[in-house]
Amino acid sequence: MEDELAMIFIMVKSGGILAPIAFILIHFLRQFLFFPVVVICIAGGALFGTLAGTIYSIIGLFLSSLLFYVLIHRLPNTHKKLSTIKRKWFGEYRNLTMSQIAILRLIPFVHYHLLSFCLLERYKGFKDYMKASVITNIPLAFFYTVFGEFISRFTPTMIVIILFSLSFLVYALREKVAVIKWKEFFNQAA
């Protein structure tokens, strides 16, 4: 993680006045560079401060979500794979709420684009998807920008308590109704 942070620092600091644009571009391209979202948000807080780092991260995550929206419709095999993974992780008829997705984005080992896919299945239209994406990215950008340096100092016990609390919130904020179409219900029973 320290090597990735050092590389991001070097890339952005060499940008000078264009450093915010370079930082946003790194956010946009992070899925191709295999940088975790958390690492980039932490670097944004260290480089630009809390307010500017959060704003730049939100812009970068917005562009990343936009890229995901465009690419997922052009890559049907990826769409099928994400659908299969979603079914395995969350269940066949379970749709995550926007609150659940916002909380799950705070957990570093939950795949960012899987959650974007869950948003896409819930909000089919472009405008609705982008609005939901921005809303669910705000806690992620703010939390890791502000508390990034403190998170690295947490004890393992504190990390387990935080993850347990986030898991409880995801459960408590779940959608309590599952709608199964008549034909699907009886086809599976046969």
Rank of each mutant, 00 (worst) to 15 (best):
V39Q: 10
T155H: 14
V39K: 01
V177E: 12
L29W: 06
Y56E: 02
H79M: 04
R87W: 00
I161M: 11
A141S: 14
R94N: 09
I180T: 07
V160N: 07
L104N: 05
I101S: 02
S57A: 13
A178N: 09
N137I: 01
Q31G: 04
L104P: 01
S152M: 13
N187L: 12
I17W: 13
G15C: 09
L29P: 05
R153P: 00
H27G: 03
N137G: 13
H73I: 07
T136N: 00
F62L: 10
V146C: 11
I58A: 10
Y171R: 11
P108T: 06
V70M: 12
I161Q: 03
I151K: 04
F142M: 13
V38F: 05
S116E: 03
A178K: 15
V177D: 06
K131S: 05
F117P: 01
R174E: 15
S165A: 13
P76M: 03
I42E: 08
F90R: 10
S99K: 14
H111F: 07
I135P: 00
I26Q: 01
L47P: 07
F109C: 03
T145F: 12
L119E: 02
N95V: 13
D128R: 02
Y129P: 12
M7D: 09
I135V: 15
F143L: 01
E121T: 01
D128A: 09
A190P: 00
F142L: 15
R87T: 08
F35M: 07
H111M: 10
I21Q: 00
A46Y: 05
N137V: 05
F154K: 04
L5F: 09
C118Y: 09
I72M: 03
H73S: 14
F9Y: 14
L61Y: 05
K183C: 00
L71K: 06
Q188Y: 08
V134D: 02
T54Y: 06
H113A: 03
L63T: 08
R153Y: 15
E92G: 05
Y93I: 00
D128F: 00
T84E: 11
L96W: 07
Y129W: 02
I101R: 08
I85W: 12
L114G: 08
F168G: 03
Y56R: 06
G16E: 06
A178R: 15
L140D: 04
L47E: 06
L75I: 03
I180N: 02
F164L: 15
Q31W: 00
F35D: 01
V37P: 03
E2V: 14
L169W: 12
S64N: 12
F126K: 04
A178T: 11
L96C: 08
Q188R: 15
R105P: 09
E175Y: 05
A189W: 12
Y93D: 14
L67E: 03
E92M: 09
S64G: 11
I159Q: 07
F168A: 14
